[in-house]
């Protein structure tokens, strides 16, 4: 399943709805479903704000791949390359707006990887395992459900 939207914040709710539906279908607990929707929302919001600088004419694609033990979310954009060292949550000792999106992604996603083979744009793969399914060292583990 792959969805492409323009980089408009008003469309975020569509992606959240799809993530919730797919996570429910896959057997995640309701609390995990909401956490996943938040994490993916934050990742897409980061693309809109930091990669496209809030311009609405960019494209954001979200592919959801379902395996027997996990869901994988692959987020692609066509914006400038992200510097990985710039992506980090802010200190929780500070009380200021902003910088929490990365924290929420890190808390609710089991594994995330920036995949650098693309000539243009960015490709972020985020993995969430089903309850009780430990992360495997073999990334191909688990049969894809399509």
């Amino acid at each position: 399943m792959k969805i492409t939207i323009s980089s408009e914040p008003r469309l975020l709710h569509i992606l959240r709805g799809v993530v919730r539906w797919r996570a429910e279908q896959s057997g995640f607990l309701s609390s995990d479903v909401e956490s996943l929707a938040l994490a993916i929302d934050e990742a897409v919001s980061n693309v809109i704000r930091h990669t496209y600088l809030s311009r609405p004419d960019g494209k954001v694609s979200l592919e959801i791949r379902s395996f027997s033990d996990r869901l994988e979310f692959v987020l692609e954009d066509s914006g400038p390359k992200v510097k990985r060292e710039d992506i980090r949550p802010r200190s929780l000792d500070e009380v200021r707006p902003g910088g929490l999106g990365t924290l929420f992604i890190n808390c609710f996603i089991d594994e995330s990887f920036y995949e650098g083979e693309r000539v243009e744009g960015n490709r972020l793969r985020m993995v969430k395992y089903l309850p009780g399914r430990a992360a495997s060292s073999d990334e191909g583990a688990g049969q894809e459900r399509g």
Partner: peptide
Amino acid sequence: TYIDSSGIATLVEGLQ
């Protein structure tokens, strides 16, 4: 029913 980091940031801005 849902709040993300931009909503939290808005509340923090209000706090400031």
